[in-house]
Simulated scan of single mutants.
Amino acid sequence: MARTTGPRLKIMRALGVELPGLSRKSIENRPNPPGQHGQQASRRRRSDFAVKLVEKQKIRFNYGVSEKQMRRLMLEARKGTEPTGEKLMSLLERRLDNVVFRAGFAPTGVAARQLVTHGHVLLNGRAANIPSIRLRVGDEVVVKENSRKIPMVVESLKAPALDRPEWLSVDTTAASVKLGHLPSIADVPFPIDVQQVVEYYANRV
């Protein structure tokens, strides 16, 4: 698991996008990159490499994955007949921590990872504390009964950070979620040009 240290809003400003998995804060009032020359930097044209790097970093920070994990995911996404970019995003969306977040059990992906690693959820009735576990169609995640009283969980269930996606079937009363079908790239909750990410790793893995 990749830990994000430092101000999360600063990261989003540098990337020029709001990442719901990283923070609930908005960059609307401060859209320019951080630093003394941020406003000038926002007007400067990015190189092709910089564009690819930014798209890759969006994924890394939103889903909380390390560079090593990204390389492994890219290798896996290349297998089969499905377009690499679409498969990559499906693999990321189906991570256990992301499903906990998208189901509305935690306010951010960062908080969802903490919920998972601290042993507050069950996967198919069994304890699961590894955020990167990948769910399959039909898998069910439940927040433990005692853990449903955690203030963060209570508030998130009342007012989820994002609309719950239709590929997840959520029971807020039981604090459970079931994977109905595989997510598509259209279900990603932030703007991403995934082809740039595929090209970034073309000669790196």
Rank of each mutant, 00 (worst) to 15 (best):
W167P: 05
Q114C: 04
K158R: 11
A159P: 04
A159R: 13
V153T: 00
V116C: 02
K158S: 08
R95L: 01
V121A: 05
R136D: 13
L92M: 06
I150S: 01
K149E: 02
F101A: 03
R113P: 08
S132K: 15
T108L: 10
I133C: 11
E140K: 08
R136T: 13
K149G: 01
N124E: 15
L115C: 01
E155Q: 04
Q114R: 07
G109E: 12
T108N: 07
A111N: 10
A159Q: 13
V141R: 01
L157C: 08
L135I: 10
P107C: 06
L162M: 12
V116T: 05
T117N: 14
G125C: 13
V142F: 03
S147D: 08
I133E: 10
G125F: 13
G109S: 11
Q114K: 08
K158Q: 08
L91F: 06
V142T: 14
Q114I: 05
L168T: 13
D97V: 09
R94Q: 05
V99D: 04
N124H: 14
A159W: 10
N129S: 15
A106L: 06
N98P: 05
S156P: 04
T117P: 07
N146L: 12
L162S: 11
L162D: 09
K144V: 06
S156V: 02
V110Y: 09
L115A: 07
R126N: 15
S156Y: 01
H118V: 00
V99P: 06
A106S: 02
P151N: 02
L162K: 12
G125D: 12
N98M: 07
V100P: 00
T117K: 14
V116N: 05
L135A: 03
P160Y: 08
A159L: 10
S132D: 15
H118C: 03
S169Y: 10
V153W: 00
R113S: 09
S147W: 02
L168V: 13
W167A: 08
P131L: 14
L168Y: 11
